[in-house]
Amino acid sequence: MRSNVPGPIPLLCRVLSLSMILLIGSPVQGQPSLARASSQVQDRVVKIYGAGGVGGLDAYQSGFIVSSIGHVATAWSSVLDVDPIVVLNDGRRFESKVVGFEPSLELAVLKLDVSDLPYFEVPAGTTEAPIARWGDPVLAVSNLFNIATGNEPESVMLGRIAARSQLDARRGTFETAYQGEVWLLDLVANNPGAAGGALVDLQGRLVGMLGKELRDRRTGVWLNYAIPSDVLRAPIGDIIAGRKTVAPVEQDPLLAREKSHNANTLGFQLIPDVLETTPVYVDTVSVNEPASRADLRPDDLILLVNGRRVPHQRAFRDQLRRIDRRDDAILTVQRDNEILELTIRP
């Protein structure tokens, strides 16, 4: 009988020892501190500086490291119009190159010349065990408002996943190129400079990438969202593995002018090339030419040619020179908020 019911004396000892453990451990608080969850990811998030600073465009945003050899995932934006500067958590500054670019995901991947970096796995999750569920607490880690500089830690905000949804469920309400699935968040995560920041769970695992600022055109309501890591996993993996790159190819031979494509043979004209880096905007499209048959339209912005990034008209002309004029040319263009892939057949 005694063996079943612990007597008061041993019980007292057990309680005392439990109490001692509690006393030695962290103080009991109404709300547990998320200090560990917040600090453990700081060495994997970065500050990114690039073009901007005029016309209401910010010259800074956030990113996170996805490989030990210096791949950084971030949001595609005008900040990346120049080769961006990346500042690591320890204050080290690097120049970087855009090596990956998924216009439809608003994803860009930068590469720094460095090794042995701590990095985030980009998990895919499974149907049974998704990377996060509705209602889960999450931390948004970003350099919003460029509050931190140098080696100062980025800002950490706490919130919850409000929903997983299609961002274009109400097409036209929100102006965004990305129209796939998102985590909708109940915290004001998408501030200036927060785009490309990391959304992590309380164990420090990557859950998604913070999106850009997004505002309902009519009501003025701001939406806070992140692109889920399972959506990002494949494209980031392809880019890191080198299976996919937007870096211009130089091994394809430069063809003679009459043997290669140019804008005229395809049947459209660009805006005048007056700048060092004039964007590849379509000015006019001739009727009944290859371009018009593929439904290229004036004001389209050409982002990729055969999957290669063309940040300016020089790069565009150069890429066309490497395509035989008898071959198709695949143009990835941005039309308002849509990303379209147009195949132009000569």
Binding site: L12, V15, L16, L18, S19, L22, Q29, P32
Partner: peptide, 30 residues
């Protein structure tokens, strides 16, 4: 007995003898 022990050993905190503290304790404390 529990409360007596707590009074002795943990006069500074309002937690119960559970480790980690329960939801109830957290809410009460908050």
């Amino acid at each position: 007995i529990v409360s007596m022990c707590l009074a002795l050993a943990m006069s500074m905190t309002a937690a119960s003898a559970e480790a980690p503290p329960s939801l109830w304790d957290r809410e009460t404390q908050r």
